[in-house]
Amino acid sequence: MTSRQAKTLDMAHPLIPVPTPETQPYWDGCNQGILRINRCNACNDAYFPPAPICPHCSSTDVKFFDASGEATLYSYTIQQKPPDLWGTQGPRSVALVKLLEGPMLTSSIINCEQTPETLRLDMPLQATFTSFGETTVLCFEPTEEQQ
């Protein structure tokens, strides 16, 4: 790492994700608008977060693949005072999202009203991406049929 890169890292907002070599393919996927997660070649399980070992069978024969981006809303809160980083004017959702492929992850539901009336448990969602400077982050939005 050059000293210039190190300085950039030091100055980054602590909430901006810092990839590691092991997770870089996921972040590269985000930059391309693709949800890329891991699947184990030995047991075929899909898993998240990215890691060079399967959490189910301990095989290191794992790969990244392009997930469907389909998901459902498992649970959520609506944060009343989001950090400035989000730049939103009002409350925003923090969600547990269950991917069609199985894994659950923490995310945000965007491109819709941030209200209990709009955010219904088990509603179908699709992956979408949003940028923070040079970092592109996975979020979810209601599927097109609902928009």
């Binding site: 602590p14 994700p17 810092v18 990839p19 590691t20 997770t23 995310s107």
Partner: peptide, 8 residues
């Protein structure tokens, strides 16, 4: 990397 940004 995967949780903090969303939860702020």
């Amino acid at each position: 990397q995967f949780d903090m940004l969303h939860g702020g």
